[in-house]
Design a protein around this nucleic acid. Structure first.
Lengths: 228, 228
DNA sequence: CGGCGAATTGACGGTAATCAAGCGACGTGG
DNA sequence: CCACGTCGCTTGATTACCGTCAATTCGCCG
Protein backbone atom coordinates (compact mmCIF):
# COMPACT_ATOMS: atom_id res chain seq x y z
CA UNK A 1 0.00 0.00 0.00
CA UNK A 2 1.37 3.38 -0.93
CA UNK A 3 2.07 5.66 1.98
CA UNK A 4 -0.08 8.50 0.70
CA UNK A 5 -3.24 8.68 -1.38
CA UNK A 6 -5.04 11.85 -0.48
CA UNK A 7 -7.18 11.90 -3.60
CA UNK A 8 -9.18 8.87 -2.57
CA UNK A 9 -11.15 10.45 0.25
CA UNK A 10 -14.46 10.02 -1.55
CA UNK A 11 -14.33 6.25 -1.31
CA UNK A 12 -12.66 6.16 2.10
CA UNK A 13 -14.06 3.58 4.50
CA UNK A 14 -14.83 6.23 7.10
CA UNK A 15 -16.01 8.94 4.71
CA UNK A 16 -19.39 8.98 6.45
CA UNK A 17 -18.57 8.04 10.01
CA UNK A 18 -15.57 10.23 10.82
CA UNK A 19 -15.12 13.97 11.14
CA UNK A 20 -15.05 13.99 7.34
CA UNK A 21 -18.78 13.27 7.27
CA UNK A 22 -19.31 16.92 8.14
CA UNK A 23 -17.81 18.06 4.82
CA UNK A 24 -19.03 17.79 1.24
CA UNK A 25 -16.66 16.41 -1.39
CA UNK A 26 -15.47 19.86 -2.43
CA UNK A 27 -14.71 20.90 1.11
CA UNK A 28 -13.01 17.61 1.79
CA UNK A 29 -10.43 18.41 -0.85
CA UNK A 30 -8.63 20.79 1.47
CA UNK A 31 -8.27 18.12 4.12
CA UNK A 32 -7.31 15.67 1.47
CA UNK A 33 -4.28 17.73 0.52
CA UNK A 34 -2.72 17.58 3.95
CA UNK A 35 -3.52 13.96 4.74
CA UNK A 36 -1.19 11.00 4.68
CA UNK A 37 -2.08 7.39 5.36
CA UNK A 38 -0.01 5.19 7.58
CA UNK A 39 -0.40 1.60 8.72
CA UNK A 40 0.87 0.71 12.18
CA UNK A 41 1.18 -2.82 13.59
CA UNK A 42 -0.45 -4.05 16.79
CA UNK A 43 1.49 -2.81 19.79
CA UNK A 44 2.95 0.21 18.04
CA UNK A 45 3.20 3.44 20.02
CA UNK A 46 1.49 6.30 18.20
CA UNK A 47 2.38 9.16 20.50
CA UNK A 48 4.07 9.66 23.81
CA UNK A 49 2.84 11.49 26.86
CA UNK A 50 4.72 14.76 26.89
CA UNK A 51 5.62 14.68 23.22
CA UNK A 52 5.41 17.71 21.03
CA UNK A 53 1.94 16.85 19.74
CA UNK A 54 2.72 17.37 16.08
CA UNK A 55 0.03 15.14 14.63
CA UNK A 56 -3.68 14.54 14.47
CA UNK A 57 -5.35 11.60 12.77
CA UNK A 58 -8.52 9.80 11.87
CA UNK A 59 -8.59 6.07 12.48
CA UNK A 60 -9.49 4.38 9.21
CA UNK A 61 -9.49 0.85 10.57
CA UNK A 62 -8.21 -1.00 13.61
CA UNK A 63 -8.31 0.11 17.23
CA UNK A 64 -6.11 1.72 19.81
CA UNK A 65 -5.98 2.61 23.47
CA UNK A 66 -5.19 5.93 25.11
CA UNK A 67 -3.10 5.61 28.24
CA UNK A 68 -1.88 7.63 31.15
CA UNK A 69 0.94 6.57 33.43
CA UNK A 70 1.64 7.36 37.09
CA UNK A 71 5.05 8.55 38.20
CA UNK A 72 5.84 5.06 39.47
CA UNK A 73 4.83 3.33 36.27
CA UNK A 74 1.30 2.03 36.77
CA UNK A 75 -0.83 2.43 33.69
CA UNK A 76 -4.42 3.34 33.14
CA UNK A 77 -6.21 3.18 29.82
CA UNK A 78 -8.43 6.25 29.65
CA UNK A 79 -10.12 5.59 26.35
CA UNK A 80 -10.52 3.19 23.46
CA UNK A 81 -10.74 4.34 19.86
CA UNK A 82 -11.74 2.55 16.69
CA UNK A 83 -12.90 3.13 13.11
CA UNK A 84 -13.95 6.70 12.49
CA UNK A 85 -12.60 8.10 15.75
CA UNK A 86 -10.30 11.09 15.87
CA UNK A 87 -7.07 11.32 17.81
CA UNK A 88 -5.08 14.43 18.57
CA UNK A 89 -5.26 17.72 20.39
CA UNK A 90 -5.56 20.67 18.06
CA UNK A 91 -4.63 23.97 19.72
CA UNK A 92 -2.72 22.28 22.52
CA UNK A 93 1.00 22.60 22.89
CA UNK A 94 1.86 19.15 24.14
CA UNK A 95 0.16 15.80 24.16
CA UNK A 96 -0.87 14.36 27.48
CA UNK A 97 -1.50 10.79 26.36
CA UNK A 98 0.20 7.73 25.02
CA UNK A 99 -1.68 5.93 22.26
CA UNK A 100 -0.95 2.30 21.45
CA UNK A 101 -2.43 0.20 18.67
CA UNK A 102 -4.40 -2.78 19.93
CA UNK A 103 -4.51 -4.31 16.47
CA UNK A 104 -3.07 -3.48 13.08
CA UNK A 105 -4.36 0.02 12.48
CA UNK A 106 -4.63 2.33 9.49
CA UNK A 107 -4.36 6.02 10.30
CA UNK A 108 -5.09 9.06 8.19
CA UNK A 109 -2.57 11.56 9.51
CA UNK A 110 -2.62 15.36 9.44
CA UNK A 111 0.13 17.68 10.61
CA UNK A 112 -1.39 19.50 13.53
CA UNK A 113 -0.68 23.01 12.29
CA UNK A 114 -2.18 22.29 8.88
CA UNK A 115 -5.19 20.64 10.41
CA UNK A 116 -5.79 23.69 12.56
CA UNK A 117 -5.67 25.89 9.47
CA UNK A 118 -8.20 23.74 7.63
CA UNK A 119 -10.43 23.74 10.67
CA UNK A 120 -10.40 27.50 10.81
CA UNK A 121 -11.55 27.58 7.19
CA UNK A 122 -14.20 24.91 7.64
CA UNK A 123 -16.61 25.74 10.45
CA UNK A 124 -18.49 22.51 9.88
CA UNK A 125 -15.36 20.55 10.61
CA UNK A 126 -14.78 22.47 13.80
CA UNK A 127 -18.38 21.93 14.83
CA UNK A 128 -18.03 18.20 14.23
CA UNK A 129 -14.89 18.06 16.35
CA UNK A 130 -16.61 19.98 19.12
CA UNK A 131 -19.51 17.53 19.18
CA UNK A 132 -17.13 14.59 19.11
CA UNK A 133 -15.08 16.06 21.96
CA UNK A 134 -18.20 16.58 24.04
CA UNK A 135 -19.19 12.96 23.49
CA UNK A 136 -15.72 11.86 24.58
CA UNK A 137 -16.08 14.01 27.67
CA UNK A 138 -19.35 12.31 28.51
CA UNK A 139 -17.72 8.92 28.10
CA UNK A 140 -14.81 9.92 30.28
CA UNK A 141 -17.20 11.05 32.99
CA UNK A 142 -19.24 7.88 32.73
CA UNK A 143 -16.00 6.01 33.24
CA UNK A 144 -15.24 8.00 36.36
CA UNK A 145 -18.43 6.60 37.84
CA UNK A 146 -17.45 3.07 36.86
CA UNK A 147 -13.89 3.32 38.15
CA UNK A 148 -14.78 5.02 41.40
CA UNK A 149 -17.88 3.14 42.45
CA UNK A 150 -18.52 -0.12 40.69
CA UNK A 151 -17.42 -3.58 41.79
CA UNK A 152 -15.15 -5.71 39.65
CA UNK A 153 -18.11 -7.77 38.45
CA UNK A 154 -20.10 -4.67 37.53
CA UNK A 155 -17.16 -3.26 35.59
CA UNK A 156 -16.82 -6.41 33.53
CA UNK A 157 -20.57 -6.55 32.96
CA UNK A 158 -20.71 -2.92 31.82
CA UNK A 159 -17.71 -3.48 29.60
CA UNK A 160 -19.33 -6.42 27.84
CA UNK A 161 -22.58 -4.50 27.44
CA UNK A 162 -20.69 -1.59 25.89
CA UNK A 163 -19.13 -3.93 23.38
CA UNK A 164 -22.51 -5.52 22.64
CA UNK A 165 -24.05 -2.12 21.95
CA UNK A 166 -21.88 -1.78 18.85
CA UNK A 167 -22.27 -5.23 17.32
CA UNK A 168 -25.95 -6.13 17.33
CA UNK A 169 -25.51 -9.86 17.74
CA UNK A 170 -25.23 -11.66 21.05
CA UNK A 171 -21.55 -12.35 20.74
CA UNK A 172 -18.47 -10.18 21.01
CA UNK A 173 -14.95 -10.49 19.75
CA UNK A 174 -12.75 -8.97 22.43
CA UNK A 175 -10.30 -6.62 20.77
CA UNK A 176 -7.78 -6.94 23.58
CA UNK A 177 -6.05 -9.16 26.10
CA UNK A 178 -7.03 -9.74 29.74
CA UNK A 179 -4.25 -7.39 30.71
CA UNK A 180 -5.55 -4.66 28.42
CA UNK A 181 -9.04 -5.10 29.87
CA UNK A 182 -7.61 -4.78 33.35
CA UNK A 183 -5.80 -1.57 32.43
CA UNK A 184 -9.04 -0.21 31.05
CA UNK A 185 -11.27 -1.20 33.96
CA UNK A 186 -8.82 -0.46 36.75
CA UNK A 187 -8.42 -4.13 37.70
CA UNK A 188 -5.64 -6.70 37.67
CA UNK A 189 -5.37 -9.51 35.14
CA UNK A 190 -6.26 -12.02 37.83
CA UNK A 191 -9.42 -10.23 38.86
CA UNK A 192 -10.55 -9.90 35.26
CA UNK A 193 -9.95 -13.58 34.71
CA UNK A 194 -11.81 -14.59 37.85
CA UNK A 195 -14.82 -12.50 36.94
CA UNK A 196 -14.98 -14.05 33.49
CA UNK A 197 -14.83 -17.48 35.06
CA UNK A 198 -17.66 -16.65 37.45
CA UNK A 199 -19.82 -15.31 34.64
CA UNK A 200 -19.18 -18.52 32.74
CA UNK A 201 -20.05 -20.71 35.74
CA UNK A 202 -23.25 -18.73 36.21
CA UNK A 203 -24.20 -19.50 32.62
CA UNK A 204 -24.38 -15.81 31.71
CA UNK A 205 -21.65 -15.94 29.10
CA UNK A 206 -19.74 -18.58 27.19
CA UNK A 207 -16.27 -18.28 25.73
CA UNK A 208 -14.27 -20.10 23.13
CA UNK A 209 -11.02 -21.74 24.08
CA UNK A 210 -8.87 -18.69 23.47
CA UNK A 211 -11.15 -16.60 25.65
CA UNK A 212 -11.27 -13.85 23.05
CA UNK A 213 -14.69 -14.66 21.63
CA UNK A 214 -17.53 -14.26 24.10
CA UNK A 215 -21.17 -15.10 23.55
CA UNK A 216 -23.60 -13.45 25.92
CA UNK A 217 -26.39 -15.87 26.74
CA UNK A 218 -28.23 -13.81 29.35
CA UNK A 219 -28.16 -10.11 28.60
CA UNK A 220 -30.69 -9.31 31.31
CA UNK A 221 -28.51 -10.93 33.96
CA UNK A 222 -25.52 -8.93 32.76
CA UNK A 223 -27.54 -5.73 32.95
CA UNK A 224 -28.60 -6.39 36.50
CA UNK A 225 -24.95 -7.01 37.44
CA UNK A 226 -23.80 -3.86 35.67
CA UNK A 227 -24.58 -1.56 38.55
CA UNK A 228 -23.32 -3.26 41.65
CA UNK B 1 -29.83 42.69 42.45
CA UNK B 2 -31.98 42.79 39.35
CA UNK B 3 -32.55 39.45 37.66
CA UNK B 4 -31.21 40.59 34.32
CA UNK B 5 -28.53 43.10 33.33
CA UNK B 6 -27.17 42.06 29.97
CA UNK B 7 -25.74 45.46 29.18
CA UNK B 8 -23.08 45.20 31.87
CA UNK B 9 -20.95 42.54 30.24
CA UNK B 10 -18.00 44.89 29.85
CA UNK B 11 -17.45 45.15 33.57
CA UNK B 12 -18.41 41.57 34.34
CA UNK B 13 -16.17 39.82 36.85
CA UNK B 14 -15.39 37.05 34.39
CA UNK B 15 -15.16 39.19 31.27
CA UNK B 16 -11.57 38.06 30.76
CA UNK B 17 -11.53 34.56 32.21
CA UNK B 18 -14.66 32.98 30.73
CA UNK B 19 -15.66 32.07 27.20
CA UNK B 20 -16.44 35.76 26.79
CA UNK B 21 -12.74 36.54 26.78
CA UNK B 22 -12.68 35.29 23.20
CA UNK B 23 -14.92 38.12 22.03
CA UNK B 24 -14.37 41.85 21.69
CA UNK B 25 -16.92 44.22 23.23
CA UNK B 26 -18.86 44.57 19.99
CA UNK B 27 -19.12 40.83 19.47
CA UNK B 28 -20.07 40.34 23.07
CA UNK B 29 -23.22 42.39 22.50
CA UNK B 30 -24.94 39.47 20.78
CA UNK B 31 -24.32 37.20 23.73
CA UNK B 32 -25.34 39.98 26.03
CA UNK B 33 -28.79 40.12 24.49
CA UNK B 34 -29.64 36.52 25.32
CA UNK B 35 -28.10 36.39 28.78
CA UNK B 36 -29.85 36.47 32.11
CA UNK B 37 -28.25 36.45 35.53
CA UNK B 38 -29.46 34.24 38.31
CA UNK B 39 -28.25 33.68 41.85
CA UNK B 40 -28.67 30.21 43.33
CA UNK B 41 -28.10 29.30 46.98
CA UNK B 42 -25.70 26.59 48.20
CA UNK B 43 -27.21 23.16 47.70
CA UNK B 44 -29.48 24.22 44.84
CA UNK B 45 -29.88 21.79 41.95
CA UNK B 46 -29.07 23.45 38.65
CA UNK B 47 -29.99 20.66 36.27
CA UNK B 48 -31.06 17.06 36.45
CA UNK B 49 -29.60 14.04 34.75
CA UNK B 50 -31.97 13.23 31.91
CA UNK B 51 -33.54 16.69 31.78
CA UNK B 52 -34.26 18.46 28.56
CA UNK B 53 -31.01 20.40 28.60
CA UNK B 54 -32.56 23.78 27.87
CA UNK B 55 -29.84 25.97 29.35
CA UNK B 56 -26.18 26.82 29.20
CA UNK B 57 -24.39 29.16 31.57
CA UNK B 58 -21.20 30.81 32.61
CA UNK B 59 -20.38 30.76 36.30
CA UNK B 60 -19.83 34.34 37.43
CA UNK B 61 -18.98 33.50 41.03
CA UNK B 62 -19.32 30.58 43.39
CA UNK B 63 -18.74 26.91 42.66
CA UNK B 64 -20.64 23.79 41.79
CA UNK B 65 -20.21 20.07 41.35
CA UNK B 66 -21.24 17.87 38.42
CA UNK B 67 -22.60 14.50 39.47
CA UNK B 68 -23.57 11.17 38.07
CA UNK B 69 -25.67 8.61 39.89
CA UNK B 70 -25.77 4.83 39.67
CA UNK B 71 -29.06 2.99 39.30
CA UNK B 72 -28.96 2.11 42.99
CA UNK B 73 -28.31 5.63 44.15
CA UNK B 74 -24.59 5.93 44.75
CA UNK B 75 -23.19 9.24 43.61
CA UNK B 76 -19.99 10.26 41.95
CA UNK B 77 -18.87 13.83 41.41
CA UNK B 78 -17.30 13.94 37.96
CA UNK B 79 -16.17 17.54 37.94
CA UNK B 80 -15.93 20.76 39.90
CA UNK B 81 -16.60 24.15 38.35
CA UNK B 82 -15.94 27.66 39.57
CA UNK B 83 -15.60 31.28 38.41
CA UNK B 84 -15.31 31.56 34.66
CA UNK B 85 -16.23 27.96 33.90
CA UNK B 86 -18.94 27.04 31.44
CA UNK B 87 -21.72 24.57 32.04
CA UNK B 88 -24.04 23.07 29.45
CA UNK B 89 -24.08 20.85 26.42
CA UNK B 90 -24.72 22.78 23.22
CA UNK B 91 -25.88 20.54 20.36
CA UNK B 92 -26.90 17.72 22.68
CA UNK B 93 -30.48 16.70 23.14
CA UNK B 94 -30.48 15.79 26.79
CA UNK B 95 -28.28 16.54 29.75
CA UNK B 96 -26.38 13.67 31.31
CA UNK B 97 -25.39 15.34 34.53
CA UNK B 98 -26.77 16.81 37.70
CA UNK B 99 -25.18 20.07 38.81
CA UNK B 100 -25.41 21.24 42.40
CA UNK B 101 -24.17 24.50 43.86
CA UNK B 102 -21.50 24.01 46.53
CA UNK B 103 -21.79 27.61 47.63
CA UNK B 104 -23.96 30.57 46.74
CA UNK B 105 -23.43 30.89 43.02
CA UNK B 106 -24.13 33.54 40.40
CA UNK B 107 -24.88 32.18 36.94
CA UNK B 108 -25.07 33.96 33.61
CA UNK B 109 -27.69 31.89 31.79
CA UNK B 110 -28.30 31.45 28.07
CA UNK B 111 -31.14 29.53 26.46
CA UNK B 112 -29.43 26.66 24.71
CA UNK B 113 -30.96 27.27 21.28
CA UNK B 114 -30.02 30.96 21.33
CA UNK B 115 -26.54 30.18 22.53
CA UNK B 116 -26.08 27.76 19.66
CA UNK B 117 -27.14 30.45 17.22
CA UNK B 118 -24.67 32.96 18.63
CA UNK B 119 -21.94 30.36 18.53
CA UNK B 120 -22.59 29.73 14.86
CA UNK B 121 -22.17 33.45 14.20
CA UNK B 122 -19.06 33.81 16.34
CA UNK B 123 -16.34 31.35 15.37
CA UNK B 124 -14.10 32.66 18.10
CA UNK B 125 -16.65 31.71 20.68
CA UNK B 126 -16.93 28.21 19.26
CA UNK B 127 -13.17 27.90 19.21
CA UNK B 128 -12.97 28.94 22.84
CA UNK B 129 -15.59 26.37 23.80
CA UNK B 130 -13.72 23.68 21.89
CA UNK B 131 -10.50 24.45 23.75
CA UNK B 132 -12.30 24.52 27.06
CA UNK B 133 -13.99 21.20 26.31
CA UNK B 134 -10.66 19.61 25.43
CA UNK B 135 -9.21 20.84 28.71
CA UNK B 136 -12.16 19.32 30.56
CA UNK B 137 -11.59 16.07 28.71
CA UNK B 138 -7.98 16.04 29.84
CA UNK B 139 -9.05 16.63 33.40
CA UNK B 140 -11.64 13.87 33.22
CA UNK B 141 -8.98 11.48 31.96
CA UNK B 142 -6.53 12.54 34.63
CA UNK B 143 -9.24 11.75 37.14
CA UNK B 144 -9.71 8.30 35.66
CA UNK B 145 -6.11 7.59 36.56
CA UNK B 146 -6.64 8.87 40.09
CA UNK B 147 -9.86 6.97 40.68
CA UNK B 148 -8.65 3.71 39.19
CA UNK B 149 -5.14 3.49 40.54
CA UNK B 150 -4.28 5.79 43.40
CA UNK B 151 -4.52 5.01 47.11
CA UNK B 152 -6.79 6.99 49.39
CA UNK B 153 -3.83 8.96 50.71
CA UNK B 154 -2.61 9.79 47.22
CA UNK B 155 -6.07 10.97 46.19
CA UNK B 156 -6.27 13.35 49.13
CA UNK B 157 -2.76 14.60 48.50
CA UNK B 158 -3.45 15.23 44.79
CA UNK B 159 -6.68 16.95 45.69
CA UNK B 160 -4.97 19.35 48.06
CA UNK B 161 -2.23 20.04 45.54
CA UNK B 162 -4.84 20.83 42.90
CA UNK B 163 -6.44 23.33 45.22
CA UNK B 164 -3.06 24.85 46.07
CA UNK B 165 -2.28 25.35 42.41
CA UNK B 166 -5.05 27.94 42.16
CA UNK B 167 -4.43 29.96 45.31
CA UNK B 168 -0.75 30.73 45.49
CA UNK B 169 -0.43 30.77 49.27
CA UNK B 170 0.28 27.74 51.41
CA UNK B 171 -3.22 27.47 52.75
CA UNK B 172 -6.49 26.37 51.25
CA UNK B 173 -10.10 27.04 52.11
CA UNK B 174 -11.95 23.83 51.28
CA UNK B 175 -15.02 24.73 49.27
CA UNK B 176 -16.83 21.56 50.31
CA UNK B 177 -17.64 19.12 53.08
CA UNK B 178 -15.89 15.80 53.84
CA UNK B 179 -18.80 14.07 52.19
CA UNK B 180 -18.44 16.14 49.03
CA UNK B 181 -14.73 15.38 48.95
CA UNK B 182 -15.49 11.68 49.27
CA UNK B 183 -17.95 11.85 46.39
CA UNK B 184 -15.33 13.56 44.30
CA UNK B 185 -12.43 11.24 45.14
CA UNK B 186 -14.39 7.99 45.16
CA UNK B 187 -13.95 7.48 48.91
CA UNK B 188 -16.21 7.38 51.95
CA UNK B 189 -16.49 10.18 54.47
CA UNK B 190 -14.69 8.05 57.05
CA UNK B 191 -11.73 7.36 54.80
CA UNK B 192 -11.40 11.02 53.90
CA UNK B 193 -11.46 11.97 57.56
CA UNK B 194 -8.89 9.35 58.50
CA UNK B 195 -6.51 10.49 55.79
CA UNK B 196 -6.78 14.09 56.93
CA UNK B 197 -5.97 13.13 60.52
CA UNK B 198 -3.00 11.08 59.37
CA UNK B 199 -1.68 14.01 57.36
CA UNK B 200 -2.12 16.20 60.42
CA UNK B 201 -0.31 13.73 62.69
CA UNK B 202 2.53 13.57 60.20
CA UNK B 203 2.84 17.36 60.41
CA UNK B 204 2.24 17.75 56.69
CA UNK B 205 -0.89 19.83 57.06
CA UNK B 206 -2.67 21.71 59.83
CA UNK B 207 -6.35 22.49 60.06
CA UNK B 208 -8.55 24.82 62.02
CA UNK B 209 -11.22 23.43 64.25
CA UNK B 210 -13.89 23.37 61.59
CA UNK B 211 -11.58 21.40 59.35
CA UNK B 212 -12.42 23.61 56.40
CA UNK B 213 -9.29 25.71 56.42
CA UNK B 214 -6.13 23.76 55.71
CA UNK B 215 -2.58 25.04 55.79
CA UNK B 216 -0.06 22.95 53.95
CA UNK B 217 3.21 22.96 55.85
CA UNK B 218 5.16 20.45 53.78
CA UNK B 219 4.33 20.66 50.09
CA UNK B 220 7.18 18.36 49.11
CA UNK B 221 5.86 15.61 51.37
CA UNK B 222 2.41 15.99 49.85
CA UNK B 223 3.87 15.72 46.39
CA UNK B 224 5.69 12.53 47.20
CA UNK B 225 2.47 11.06 48.57
CA UNK B 226 0.47 12.16 45.53
CA UNK B 227 1.38 9.16 43.47
CA UNK B 228 1.07 6.12 45.64
C1' DC C 1 7.89 -32.96 21.81
C1' DG C 2 9.37 -28.74 23.97
C1' DG C 3 9.14 -23.91 24.87
C1' DC C 4 6.83 -19.67 25.45
C1' DG C 5 3.35 -16.29 26.64
C1' DA C 6 -1.28 -15.70 28.08
C1' DA C 7 -4.86 -17.20 31.03
C1' DT C 8 -6.47 -19.56 35.00
C1' DT C 9 -6.60 -21.00 39.74
C1' DG C 10 -5.21 -20.92 44.60
C1' DA C 11 -3.60 -18.94 49.13
C1' DC C 12 -2.93 -14.93 51.64
C1' DG C 13 -2.89 -10.12 53.17
C1' DG C 14 -3.87 -5.15 52.98
C1' DT C 15 -6.73 -1.35 52.09
C1' DA C 16 -10.77 0.84 52.37
C1' DA C 17 -15.95 0.03 53.09
C1' DT C 18 -19.22 -0.83 56.53
C1' DC C 19 -21.31 -0.61 60.93
C1' DA C 20 -21.41 1.80 65.16
C1' DA C 21 -20.30 5.13 68.74
C1' DG C 22 -18.76 9.43 70.41
C1' DC C 23 -17.40 14.31 69.96
C1' DG C 24 -17.71 19.28 69.09
C1' DA C 25 -19.94 23.35 67.23
C1' DC C 26 -23.99 25.73 66.59
C1' DG C 27 -28.78 27.24 66.95
C1' DT C 28 -33.27 27.05 69.11
C1' DG C 29 -36.38 27.28 72.70
C1' DG C 30 -37.48 26.89 77.45
C1' DC D 1 -28.19 31.12 80.41
C1' DC D 2 -28.29 26.46 79.77
C1' DA D 3 -30.48 22.13 78.09
C1' DC D 4 -31.19 19.90 73.99
C1' DG D 5 -31.18 18.40 69.16
C1' DT D 6 -28.92 18.48 64.89
C1' DC D 7 -25.28 18.09 61.80
C1' DG D 8 -20.69 17.35 60.39
C1' DC D 9 -16.55 15.28 61.72
C1' DT D 10 -13.72 11.93 64.06
C1' DT D 11 -12.55 7.47 65.93
C1' DG D 12 -12.93 2.46 66.63
C1' DA D 13 -13.95 -2.52 65.37
C1' DT D 14 -14.89 -5.67 61.91
C1' DT D 15 -15.48 -7.34 57.24
C1' DA D 16 -15.09 -7.98 52.35
C1' DC D 17 -13.16 -7.24 48.20
C1' DC D 18 -9.50 -7.10 45.40
C1' DG D 19 -4.34 -7.01 44.86
C1' DT D 20 -0.20 -9.64 45.33
C1' DC D 21 2.57 -13.65 44.97
C1' DA D 22 2.95 -18.19 43.25
C1' DA D 23 1.91 -22.36 40.81
C1' DT D 24 -0.33 -24.64 37.04
C1' DT D 25 -2.67 -25.09 32.75
C1' DC D 26 -3.80 -23.92 28.13
C1' DG D 27 -3.04 -22.62 23.39
C1' DC D 28 0.15 -21.84 19.91
C1' DC D 29 4.22 -22.44 17.09
C1' DG D 30 8.53 -24.06 16.08
Amino acid sequence: MTPSQPSHCHDCLIRDSSLCASLCDAELATLSKISRRKAVPAGAVISWEGDDNALCANIVSGSLKLMKTTADGREQTVGLLSDGDFIGQPFAESGSLTAIALSETMLCLYPRASFERVMSDQPKLERALLERTMRSLNEARERQLTLARKSAKARIASFLLDLLRDRSSGSVELPMSRGDIGDYLGLTIETVSRQFTELKSAGIIAADRGGRSISVDDVAALQSLADD
